[in-house]
Amino acid sequence: MVSVDGGKSGSLIQVRELDKTYRRGNEDIHVLQGLNLDVDQGDFVAFMGPSGSGKTTMLNLLGGLDVPTRGSVTVAGDEITHMSRGKLTEWRARHVGFIFQMYNLIPVLTAFQNVELPLLLTKLSKAERRKHVEAALAIVGLADRMHHFPRQLSGGQEQRVAIARAIVADPTFLLCDEPTGDLDRKSADEVMELLRRLVDEYGKTVLMVTHDPVVARIAKQTLHMEKGVLVEAGARQEVVSGGAS
């Protein structure tokens, strides 16, 4: 169960007193202010909030893509905020699966080759890599498209390939930044159903930023962020009854 009061212990992801300040000219912009968050294994959390509220910044900090001004992020016992750039890169390869709004597949690689990318950083043999990639593509329902290039796939299919790439190395958690933001409703529903299955059937932990309340409904819990502070937490049903639909 997700908590934002900072009093919980033993959770998979622990965020404590996280601040992020950008300097623009002479002005300090406080994007995140004293953020606390605890996420357990198997949680599926949606972060909602207006543009500029700090959702993506928080996701970047949780994923080790950015460093906080203050505070700490601990994932599965690893405190990542003081890691060197190189260590952080290694840590990301082992623990984080990224899913972006624009899919960000490598256009000159096939679906198979795109999904294989994270495994190139492991010591798996070619045969083992093939096995893992085929399994990941089967999970996302694209086993028959593995030799297609991104331009030969629909937007929804591209995002499913991106999800396969995110899960193929079996990361500790998935970070999704507007995963349905560029999709039509039908494709968005398919992607969200896929994410739900990853949580329910495979026990994955998913943290997702979205503007779409319909998408947020699929998550187990929704947190609202405003001006760099998590201001509300509730179970999925509470969010729905709160007018998300």
Binding site: G63, L65, R85, G86, T89, E90, R92, A93, R94, F98, F100, M102, N104, I106, P107, L117, P118, L121, R165
Partner: peptide, 14 residues
């Protein structure tokens, strides 16, 4: 640039 950023995000070193 975006592709290189993705490679780095998923764990490819500098």
């Amino acid at each position: 640039t975006p592709e290189l950023a993705i490679l780095k995000a998923i764990g490819f070193s500098d």
